[in-house]
Each structure stands twice: as structure tokens, then as C-alpha cells.
């Protein structure tokens, strides 16, 4: 199957890309990795008149740490985040999340920013960046603005980006203490969208108590969700089995799933509970391991 005919522009700078978006407005779509966009164009579910290919814009490539945060360029492929030897040990949730997206071939092409801009509630990055308290920077005709991840997703496949705005990069705060993470996904096979996904990111302070806790949920609401009450419960505490169970129950309450072919709402909510409990158990084990190593 072939996409409808469209005009193709491949700007060499961000400036030109934004100009193109201003010129074509709603008729244009940004093409990054294309792993979601091109399939729906082939099925002729989407038929943009213009594709603005941002792959030839050098300033969107790569990643770097500056100051208090990690900056990941919009064109960074999932596979880069999955395999990078420097990044993965220090940002374990990035590596774990990247490694479970779609399939290895899609990960070679798909980008973190493209996935966020697509805003599929079942996608993995939304939940992970909620857990990491990330943000994105966007460039539009009115300049740059930074959007906290909590403010990015409005509804199913809907973000608060303006038609002339492009995500230029993703920001992740640098962890301060010991870090452990877990990404759990129920998929019916590799390449399936998540039935339920849970992303966990925990940082502990010198005392071993939790300084920062992030719990993001995928596929259990119209957007990726944060399990806020469960996070609050964890902060300042030690991870005990009782606390983990309590957090898991709270996280399940935060889920707002719909019944469909992948399972009932009750089912999905309960999977959130099970995954948060298992994930925090794994996080506790990892933190114990890290403390033992550093001692």
C-alpha cells in the first residue's frame, strides 16, 4: 500500500523547518523516524499534503548533559538510548524503556521526540518521562518554549503543541543519589502496543530513604498518566514490602483504563497494581545491590 501523493521538504535548519510549518499549517506533518506516521499514511488513515522531514537538521541530533540535566536531541533513535554505554547505567529507565519499544528494527529508526509528539497513550516514552519528571523544548514561530511532561499530553493523540511547533529536544533531570528503575510492560507479543505499561524511577538519598519517586503508567487512560499519590507516599520512606503494596494499590487507583480487546478495565487496573508491586520489588533489590557495591 502506498501513501497518497504529498510534497516533501527536507529543511537543513530548524528555522526553515518552522517556516515550512508556518507556510503549510495543518496540511503539514513533521517526519522524524516515521515509524508511526508512515504506516498510517500507507493505510491512508492519514494523508498530509506536506511532509517536513527534520532528519537533515544537525542541531536536533545527539545528546549531552549540561548543568542539572540531560538533553536528548529530537532525532535520537530509541536504539541509541537502548545501547549507549555511558547513558544507560546512569539513566537506567531510558535504557529499559527504549529496549522494550516495538521491535529492534523500529527502534533503529523511531525517535523519542516523534513518539512523544504522536502522543499515543499506549506508547512507552510518555510514562517513562513522567516517571523521570522530564520536559520537552519546542521551537515554533514564536520562538522556544519548554513544556513539562505533565503538561504535554492533552488527550488521545493530542498534545499542546501548536501546528507550527517542533519538539527539538527532551530534558531529563540528572539523578542525584542512587538510582534504580524498572519498566514493565504486558504485551501479547513483541511489537504489540502495551496492554499495560508501568515505568518506575527511584532515587535514594544518603540515608537510603527515597528522595525522588516517579511512577508513570501507559495504556490505562487517554494519555500517559502519573500515579501521583503513590509517588508522594514513597518519598522519605524506605521500600518495605508493606509500603510497596500500599503504593501499588494507590497506583492502581490512579489508572483510568477502558475495556477493549486487550482486557477489561478491572484487569488493566489490577495489572498496574501487580506491575508496580513487582517493579518496586525489583527497584528495592537493585538499590540494595547498588548500596552493597558502593559500601
Amino acid at each position: 500500500m502506498f501513501p497518497n501523493a504529498f510534497e516533501y521538504v527536507a529543511p537543513a535548519s530548524l528555522e526553515e523547518a518552522v517556516q515550512a510549518l508556518v507556510r503549510y499549517g495543518d496540511d503539514a506533518k513533521v517526519l522524524a523516524g516515521g515509524q508511526s506516521l508512515l504506516p498510517i499514511m500507507k493505510l491512508r488513515v492519514a494523508a498530509p499534503a506536506v511532509l517536513v522531514d527534520i532528519n537533515r537538521i544537525p542541531e536536533l541530533a545527539g545528546f549531552r548533559e549540561d548543568g542539572q540535566e540531560l538533553w536528548v536531541g529530537a532525532l535520537t533513535r530509541h536504539a541509541t538510548l537502548e545501547w549507549d554505554q555511558d547513558l544507560v547505567p546512569r539513566y537506567p529507565l531510558l535504557g529499559e524503556t527504549a529496549g522494550s519499544i516495538a521491535d529492534p528494527l523500529v527502534r533503529n529508526r523511531g525517535t523519542i521526540a516523534g513518539s512523544l509528539a504522536h502522543a499515543d497513550p499506549a506508547a512507552d516514552w510518555g510514562a517513562a518521562l513522567l516517571a523521570l519528571r522530564g520536559a520537552v523544548t519546542v521551537r515554533g514561530s514564536r520562538g522556544d518554549r519548554r513544556i513539562a511532561i505533565d503538561d504535554l499530553f492533552l488527550d488521545v493523540l493530542t498534545t499542546n503543541l501548536e501546528p507550527d511547533e517542533i519538539i527539538t529536544g527532551v530534558h531529563v533531570p540528572r539523578p542525584t543519589g542512587h538510582v534504580a528503575a524498572a519498566s514493565l510492560k504486558l504485551e501479547r507479543k513483541v511489537g504489540d502496543f502495551a496492554v499495560v505499561g508501568v515505568a518506575l524511577h527511584v532515587e535514594t538519598g544518603a540515608s537510603g530513604a527515597i528522595a525522588q519517586a516517579g511512577i508513570g503508567l501507559a495504556a490505562v487512560g487517554p494519555t500517559s498518566l502519573r500515579a501521583r499519590e503513590a509517588e508522594t507516599l514513597l518519598v522519605g520512606q524506605q521500600l518495605t514490602p508493606g509500603l510497596i503494596r500500599e503504593a501499588a494499590d494507590l497506583a492502581a487507583k490512579a489508572a483510568d483504563p477502558a475495556s477493549d480487546q486487550r482486557g477489561s478495565a478491572d484487569y488493566k487496573r489490577d495489572i498496574v497494581r501487580v506491575f508496580v508491586e513487582r517493579g518496586l520489588g525489583a527497584v528495592r533489590d537493585r538499590l540494595t545491590g547498588i548500596r552493597a557495591e558502593s559500601a
Binding site: 504486558l186 501479547r188 496492554v195 486487550r262 482486557g263 477489561s264 478491572d266 484487569y267 489490577d270
Partner: peptide
């Protein structure tokens, strides 16, 4: 035997 179906029986 999707996971949800088995789970409903378990429940």
C-alpha cells in the same frame, strides 16, 4: 488464550 481471559478465570 489471551492473558486477560486466563486472568478472568483466575479471578
Amino acid at each position: 488464550l489471551f492473558p486477560w481471559k486466563v486472568w478472568e478465570v483466575l479471578r
